[in-house]
Nucleic acid binder design. Structure first.
Lengths: 338, 338
DNA sequence: CCCTGGCACTCGACGCCCCCGAGTGCCAGC
DNA sequence: GCTGGCACTCGGGGGCGTCGAGTGCCAGGG
């Protein structure tokens, strides 16, 4: 177990390194922090911290920098989430209050978060798994061609073309439309598959193939509709922390373009409370030199989606966590109001 | 007026510089190209080209690099658009054929273009203004509440709620739906106002108010909801040509995050044919060191939106233009089919 | 008139060396 | 267990010389 003072030393190292972006030495430490001991003592502590793997030397005769493990300890034990200042909060509220619809809320949030943290922001759209079907419309465009339109209770509309295996009469179409809606209107997406399962049986043999095709297209659409979407912003901030150029930022840019990667990233985070994943804790290796701070947000008590930022492991954790938490709260409020 | 040989020299300089990314000198030029003259002669030509502003020296005693003006001449007079190879075309077709809906087409297109050109790709969603109406659907959600769904020929769907001034029967609704579609289906958005002008007259007095309300909502949708959307991809490719400075890529990343900037960028391009904007020809100063190659695409003969790539002025223009043109063509085909 | 080879000159890139100083580990003493 | 002292390490930066690609100019030849 590390002594109290050694923890202080670690905290001081993290703070200084985050501030200066340069390895920090024993002398500089004692000058900038009132630890009450001499550099020599600090050196001993540093040696101990290095033995435990919390800090490392980039090369002999250089100062120390925190390791992922060091940041982890810092975040878990040594840092307090820094609340935003009053003007910052007002700015958030003003900015988000101007949003006109869901898209706008999400877009504004991502900009806000990127600006506030000066890092890359990621915001997931509120999940639709709890949505219900308002209406399903079928339109005949050609004898063997049907357009399927799905309308959800949140006002979203999805449309698909269906190529039928056989011509499908207008009356059969009306029949299918009526039966379909009476079963699924008002029901949750997740219940639909079961509700339409035996529908083909109600039709003549010649139409069953088409009915089946239409139904499976509908089910596909439902699945896609619930697929998680997200928006990112502030990628230009990546250039701030990349003297050691393309090497660092290229894989990050690549990872950020893969929505799948990001969704997995957010998915791995805890559903409640804030999650901080540091460096190699991130499964995706392009993100091994970055940290991800994420938190769920939602209109009620329940989180419906997540948002967060991606930045260098050498980031201001207290400040970033404060900003992320504050933004999540305000977005939740906005969603609850609308 | 420049002699034929000097144009050849300029072409050779552009080609070599694009290939090697290094200033090109007179000796190297004569070695790599069979110009039929000695380095000394080339030097004279180069001096002339420099006087005219087509090439420049980064510093004394270095080779020459093309200026924006030089690239412009190259693109206008010296380069042929390079057609894609057969395997490349097959790859494009295969990749795009797998798309299931409009979103998917756009997403795939942007990935494809980024991969093909190894640059940043930008694809605009088909704009509603130049589209035609495929179908208008009306759904009765409550006695005095109608949902209007507009489906365009490009597969885009827009939806609006209409609160009717009076209850509106199912049969009247069907009547309106039929009349409306027989008039506007297949017609351009811009023609719709005139086509529906006298429609209320065909209805009973009690329904006219509602018909009028529905129609004006439709017109609003056509006019208002022309909000242009676009998608970008391949930003990681920026790192390829910026090992020198984060300085270069930062403003580019910033510009790319501003949809407004990009829309203006594409908007400035010609409606038909390919547009190449080189360096300072781009109004936005963050993009002063990049070139933008863009072209319109559409389901029929007419362009409904644009797509293109953003890359360094030092890019392979013939290849890029070939890829952009080919992708635009195939996307057009896909849109026409669906 | 235009092309050519020759020549002197320029200047950035590269490698070398050396010094400086921050930072370290260790140790004896308080 | 903390402290000051001390010898050592090593990366960074500045100065310097060399190298070579590239240039402009010029006189001579087709």
């Amino acid at each position: 177990m590390l002594s109290e003072r050694r923890l202080q030393v670690l905290r001081a190292i993290v703070q200084d390194y985050v501030g200066t972006e340069e390895p920090v030495g024993s002398k500089a430490l004692t000058e900038r922090h009132s630890l009450g001991v001499s550099p020599a003592t600090v050196r001993n502590d540093m040696a101990a911290l290095e033995d435990e793997g919390y800090i490392a030397q980039p090369h002999t005769s250089a100062g120390r920098i925190p390791t992922d493990k060091g940041y982890r300890l810092f975040v878990d034990k040594l840092a307090e989430v820094k609340p935003l200042t009053a003007p910052e909060r007002r700015a958030i509220q003003n900015f988000l209050d101007g949003a006109v619809d869901l898209d706008d809320v999400v877009t504004r949030t991502v900009r806000l978060l990127a600006q506030l943290t000066r890092q890359v922001a990621v915001v997931q759209y509120p999940s639709l798994t709890r949505s219900t079907v308002r209406h399903v419309e079928l339109l005949s465009l050609a004898p063997a061609r049907v357009m399927l339109v799905l309308i959800t209770d949140t006002g979203r509309v999805e449309q698909r073309m269906v190529d039928c295996p056989a011509p499908f009469g207008e009356s059969s179409l009306a029949d299918l439309r009526a039966r379909l809606n009476s079963r699924v209107a008002g029901r949750r997406f997740t219940d639909v598959p079961q509700l339409v399962q035996d529908l083909p049986e109600a039709f003549e043999a010649e139409d069953r193939g088409t009915v089946q095709t239409v139904l499976s297209t509908l089910l596909e659409t439902l699945v896609e509709e619930t697929e998680e979407r997200l928006v990112i912003g502030g990628t230009a901030n990546l250039t701030r922390f990349a003297h050691d150029f393309p090497l660092t930022i290229r894989p990050v840019l690549e990872a950020l373009e893969e929505q799948v990667v990001l969704l997995k990233l957010l998915g791995e985070a805890k559903d409640s409370g804030m999650t901080v994943r540091i460096g190699h804790e991130n499964a995706h290796e392009g993100l091994n030199s970055t940290s991800v701070v994420s938190v769920g947000y939602g209109s009620g008590g329940e989180a419906v989606a997540k948002l967060g930022v991606v930045g260098p492991t050498r980031m201001d954790y207290p400040g970033t966590m404060g900003a992320v938490r504050a933004v999540a709260r305000y977005v939740g409020q906005i969603l609850a109001e609308s």
